[in-house]
């Protein structure tokens, strides 16, 4: 399992470097802008003049001049989607990507159990996600002393933990879908679509209270965002981690029992649905 974990990290180093640098530059830039934005005269009045629906969709935008509100609006609200693209993409192709390329066939012919391969790669994904978020967190913590963002390193850390858990949920969901759907692309589209739909639903629920009961069954309802700066909801965090663990166990269970496909060998289509009006293969329509 360790060999596969190391191999996964080695293969993901380009993504870690790319995402890490991008998020670090973004963090440095946003920290340096904090004082300017907080000191703009009449900024709160400007925000208050926005349409109420828009303000409700994005949450408490009036808190933007506080460090917690600033992180929430300029990081936590968007990054669940932006880094979510990374998580969904990696999760969907973690095993099935190699299967579609025909690489997995040879790997699994070596003395590595499917269990070791699965968990080695999944842990590689978890570690890569953690490294990206760690770099991103450092880019907020390190320059914060020179800005008015008077938060401790642990206060900065707290909103990154729910984000980490949320990325695990959707990344592992993509992995599970890749075990059930015929291709990486479909798994990525399905899980990415659910992520975006959940994001929109949460925003709409702030406008339409009738949707509140529905969002309780969605993962992003339990994503704290910038609110975690002041107090982390450990129950929600544990819940998100537990959900991703369940998804991972289901994906592992499925991976244990399925054929490893190679191109042209079948199994790429969804199981055909039986339709009463569909002719059976090999039968001819009566004249």
């Amino acid at each position: 399992m360790f060999a596969e974990f190391k191999h996964t990290l080695r293969r993901m180093r380009g993504q870690m470097i790319g995402w890490g640098i991008g998020l670090a530059l973004y963090g440095l830039m946003m920290v340096s802008f904090f004082d300017t934005i907080a000191d703009i005269a009449g900024f709160e009045e400007l925000i208050a003049s926005y349409p109420q629906e828009l303000l409700a969709f994005f949450g408490d935008m009036m808190a933007i001049t506080t460090p917690a509100g600033y992180i929430d609006i300029y990081y936590c609200t968007y990054m669940q989607i932006i880094i979510g693209i990374f998580a969904v993409g990696v999760g969907a192709s973690l095993l099935v990507g190699d299967e579609e390329k025909g690489i997995l066939d040879l790997v699994l012919a070596h003395p590595v159990s499917r269990t070791a391969l699965f968990w080695g790669r999944w842990l590689g994904f978890v570690a890569a996600t953690a490294v990206i978020l760690l770099v991103s967190w450092l880019s907020w913590v390190i320059p914060s002393g020179r800005s008015g963002m008077e938060l401790t390193w642990i206060e900065f850390l707290r909103p990154f933990l729910p984000l980490f858990a949320e990325l695990l949920v959707f990344g592992t969901l993509a992995l599970l879908f890749s075990m059930l759907l015929p291709s990486v692309r479909m798994a990525g589209m399905a899980s990415g679509g659910l992520l975006v739909a959940n994001y929109l639903l949460i925003g709409l629920a702030n406008i339409n209270k009738d949707l509140e009961s529905a969002i309780k069954f969605t993962p992003l309802h339990y994503y704290q965002g910038g609110d975690a700066v002041t107090e982390l909801n450990w129950g929600w965090l544990a819940g998100l981690l537990a959900v991703s663990a369940v998804f991972a166990l289901l994906a592992w269970w499925r991976f244990q029992r399925r054929d490893i496909r190679v191109g042209g060998e079948g199994g790429w289509r969804l199981p055909s649905l039986w339709l009463p009006f569909r002719r059976r293969a090999g039968t001819k329509r009566e004249a």
Partner: peptide, 21 residues
Amino acid sequence: DPVAVQARAGYLPGELRLDPN
């Protein structure tokens, strides 16, 4: 016991694909 078999066997697939990078 697939791992025990794989440990003692060498396999060359018909459509060999390797990590290109």
